[in-house]
Amino acid sequence: MLSRTADSLFWLSRYVERADYLARVLEAAARLSALPKAYGSGTNEWESAVATAGCTDLFRKFYETPEAANVIHFLAFSEDNPSSIKSCLEVARNNARAVRTAITSEMWQTINGAWLELPQMAAKATDPDSLMDFLDWVKEISLRFDGSGYRTMLRNDAYWFARLGIFIERADNTARILDVKYHVLLPEHAAVGGGIDYSQWAAILRAVSALTSYHWVYRQGLQPWLIADLLILNQQMPRSLASCYGAIAANLERLSSAYGRHGESQRLARSILVQLENNRIEQIFQSGLHEFVTGFIANNNRLGAAVATQYLS
């Protein structure tokens, strides 16, 4: 397969996944900010949404103070932000168009249809209720894209590169939430307790669609270290770092056995996976949650670079 084709498939998946993530981040922020002011924690939910999306520096070039209107615009619709939902869907569509014949018509119709529908959908999202409709629509697109890929693509290298893109992006996204929110999960903070913490914890879980899963897995009230455990180490939870790396390693193995050649990507992915598998949440808290998450993000980026060097260029 052409390296450029693999590159486009990889980035197509990443951008669709990113659009989905941004929709969840905005949804969580909107929910938290709607809480009564009495719960006011002094934190600005909109500021933290921008941070979770990883575009604080760019945001500051355009706005002074993060507030509902400018953050929603910036993360959802801005053309100045290359990682806004709108930009993500546009880049995804351009990548899809470049590999039109390497994806199935179901996938193409989903992403091309989304791109065509985007202007009307965006124009309608003027108040909080319709914003939610818009965000639901974005999540719907990503579900359909993901699902149609899963149901219709041949299981060959094209599929594995597409999957690789999804999971590397998803791992990055989960790690970013932890990176921005780690402080509310720390024990000293947990001691404070109270409604505000509960809302914050619930918001984290919602952003990764795991509030219900949490209860199924742990059968108890929200505990910060268990939330961290779920997002980092739990292999059943599809957005956890461990689960993402299980999928990443598996897809890289399929590529290496199809091509008959191992490389840096496989070595790196295995080593990250093993670190996750052999870790315990107590150990992570002991040596520093923040340090762990920062280290993971750097490793995940290194893997992305290794995949690019080995296959995509």
């Binding site: 397969m1 052409l2 390296s3 450029r4 084709t5 693999a6 014949t101 290298d157 590169f161 590529l255 091509y259 050649r261 296959y311 995509l312 260029s313």
Partner: peptide, 21 residues
Amino acid sequence: ELVEGSDLFVRDSVVFMRTTE
């Protein structure tokens, strides 16, 4: 393969395409 110029390169007067393999 449908290639663009950047998918191809020439080494020692032979044309190659960049593939995942």
